[in-house]
């Protein structure tokens, strides 16, 4: 394979991976810490896209301010369902999952009622091309990759070096031990949900920038998050990173050489195999 072909494929792979990890990270966090399979996760990504559109288009805010604020707005808004839906169902895996299914329908249909169902594009903040060593990269994609990587780094630093991050890790390890140590699990859940939906919203905003924005777009990021966490291990943060890279890269390659449907079949085949042979994923822990 020639380098001229390889580099663009790799670059697409990296940008897909970065967005996928952003979305999958929150999904896996919510499961790992709260034991909730958040079927509404993709809708929070969708909301991120619409929040960004609102800030850029209606309020004409500069991009660098609008993007983080859009993500934070969604994160704050998500505390409502956390408080009034999920908190009442903690510890009940299937009821909380069914409620999340309901929430997903509510948010997507609410989006349709508010914004109409059609797809639209975000005003592009960057439209130039950058040439590096004989290769041409679209500027907006480079920005997406840079932002995603920065967000992932910030997340890592937060979890690794703050008190709240420590609490998160402890609860993820063992909830009972965490409670015995005096960690407020409810507060931890709240932070987790906030972080997860903020990351999803950021991922969704970037996703909408590259592809398109619509109230029903949430299904795609959710599907990707599913695939990634099954590959990496439901609840495992490093697993989400690994799964995101694997999915992003393989999609980029398979899409280029075999087309989108082959790529889809391949990822479904891979996760069915994994679920059968190793349901806890590549980096997850088997459950008792």
């Amino acid at each position: 394979m020639s380098v001229s072909l390889l580099v663009p494929i790799l670059f697409t792979g990296v940008s897909l991976s970065a967005i996928y990890i952003l979305v999958a990270l929150g999904f896996t966090l919510v499961f790992g810490i709260m034991r909730v399979v958040n079927f509404a996760h993709g809708e929070f990504a969708m909301m991120g896209g619409f929040a960004l559109l609102f800030l850029l288009d209606r309020l004409a805010w500069p991009y660098w301010l609008a993007l983080p604020l859009a993500a934070l707005m969604v994160g704050v808004a998500s505390l409502l369902p956390e408080r009034f839906v999920f908190r009442r169902l903690y510890g009940q895996e299937l009821p909380s999952m069914i409620a999340a299914l309901g929430l997903s329908v509510v948010l997507a249909e609410g989006g349709i009622i508010l914004f109409e169902v059609h797809e639209r594009s975000l005003p592009s903040a960057f439209s130039g091309l950058i040439h590096i060593g004989g290769f041409t990269f679209p500027e907006d994609r480079l920005v997406v990759v840079a932002i995603a990587l920065a967000a992932l780094a910030a997340f890592w630093l937060f979890v690794r070096f703050t008190r709240i991050g420590l609490a998160l890790r402890t609860v993820a390890q063992d909830r009972e031990i965490a409670e015995a140590q005096g960690i407020d699990t409810r507060a931890t859940y709240r932070v987790t949900f906030f972080l997860a939906t903020t990351l999803a919203a950021l991922g969704g905003a970037l996703f909408a920038q590259i592809y398109a924005l619509s109230p029903l777009m949430g299904q795609v990021p959710l599907m990707k998050a599913f695939i990634i966490v099954i590959i990496g291990g439901l609840g495992s943060v490093p697993g989400a990173a690994l799964g995101g890279v694997l999915l992003g890269m393989s999609e980029s390659f398979l899409n280029t050489f075999y087309g989108a449907s082959v790529a889809q079949f391949a990822s479904f085949g891979a996760i069915i195999l994994l679920l059968v042979l190793r349901p806890w994923g590549l980096l997850g822990r088997p459950e008792g």
């Binding site: 009442r88 409620a99 299914l101 309901g102 929430l103 329908v105 509510v106 249909e109």
Partner: peptide, 14 residues
């Protein structure tokens, strides 16, 4: 109606 469908689902679960 789809919206209400989701609302009903949540309410039933809760």
């Amino acid at each position: 109606q789809r919206f209400l469908y989701g609302v009903v689902l949540i309410i039933v679960m809760l």
